[in-house]
């Protein structure tokens, strides 16, 4: 077990390195630089600024410097917010994005699994039809439309929740609901089909024959088996939450790192882009590792050393 985790962490470190290298060269070689926007600076001024940030060096040099500094925990200073180190900017935005992400994940897992079980238990009923529709609608609805509908109804029409900004717990409700909608649909769907399969299996028939209460069969015996598909999807779901957060933070004007990332890409603020890429990369790798460990935990048939062929 421990050896497996170490192996995986090592392989994750290589993936992370590949990722940051790819992103580094992609963004440096992209046309346009951080300091050639609107204001046309005199060439000497521009040269000075570029020198201050090491942008006059060849790209591979900049790469080497960046890697060396990162390994010492220095993510450089932002270009846009000059004087502010990237670690400070991430430090102020990450708690907000993480709060959003954790709440959305909890909501989508909790509600998705519960609804999926319910739909499978009452297969063919109106509950099942509604959840089936939600699960198809969930992957067909773009996040901005979910957000718009929620804002229109709950904040402009009913006035229950603020339409934007981050100042009270109530301002968490609409962004979290938006962010959770899609993963909820996916989890519900996966749980429903896994649950249907379990309910038809031999061990459920045995439990029924023994006279176990129906509710105990569904929520104790079959449920444990039906959690597996949702767990294996934890990695992609975490990825979906990251991209979802870009739109959500933009629409609801939340000062998280998703919003910074898009802004930084547009402004060619290299240090911020790289810093946030690094943070996202680490989070996603850990989520994937957690998913695999949970998977093995929930399903004893899975041996960790084996390479799973998808």
């Amino acid at each position: 077990m421990a050896i497996y985790v170490i192996k995986r962490l090592f392989s994750a470190a290589i993936t992370l390195w590949l990722l940051v290298t790819l992103v580094f060269f992609l963004i440096r070689l992209a046309p346009g630089g951080p300091f050639d926007e609107e204001r046309a600076w005199p060439p000497e001024v521009k040269a000075n600024i570029e020198k201050r940030y090491g942008l006059d060096q060849p790209v591979y040099r900049q790469y080497a410097t960046w890697i060396a500094n990162v390994s010492r925990g220095d993510l450089h200073e932002s270009f846009q917010y000059s004087g502010h180190p990237v670690s400070e900017i991430i430090g102020s935005g990450l708690p907000i994005s993480a709060t959003l992400g954790v709440f959305a994940l909890a909501l989508s897992l909790g509600a998705g699994i519960a609804l999926g079980c319910l739909a499978a238990w009452r297969e063919g009923s109106w509950i099942d039809s509604i959840t089936t529709f939600i699960s198809v609608a969930g992957v067909s609805l773009p996040a901005y439309l979910v957000a718009s509908l929620l804002i229109l109804f709950f904040s402009l029409y009913l006035g229950w929740f603020p339409p934007a900004l981050w100042d009270s717990p109530a301002s968490l409700v609409l962004p979290v609901a938006t962010l959770a909608f899609r993963p909820l649909a996916v989890i519900m769907r996966l749980t429903r089909s896994a649950m249907l399969e379990s309910l038809r299996s031999d061990f459920v028939r045995t439990a029924r024959a023994k006279g176990v209460h129906e509710r105990a069969i569904v929520f104790k015996h079959a449920l444990r088996n039906s959690l597996i598909p949702a767990l294996t999807q934890l990695g992609p779901i975490a990825g979906g939450l990251v991209t979802g957060s870009f739109v959500v933070e933009l629409i609801f004007q939340l000062p998280g790192i998703g919003k910074h990332f898009v802004q930084a890409v547009l402004n060619r603020d290299y240090p911020i882009v790289m810093g946030i890429t690094l943070v996202y990369g680490i989070i996603l790798l850990l989520c994937n590792l957690a998913a695999d460990l949970l998977y093995a935990f929930a399903d004893p048939r899975v041996r960790l050393e084996e390479e799973r062929t998808a």
Binding site: L19, L26, I27, G239, T243, V265, G281, L285, N288
Partner: peptide, 24 residues
């Protein structure tokens, strides 16, 4: 598969954002 895994791990829309500024 290493390449595919990298793409899978990292949300494809994030890479698309980066590619967009590269391609214009």
């Amino acid at each position: 598969m290493r390449v595919v895994d990298l793409f899978y791990l990292f949300p494809s829309l994030l890479l698309a954002i980066l590619l967009m500024i590269f391609l214009g």
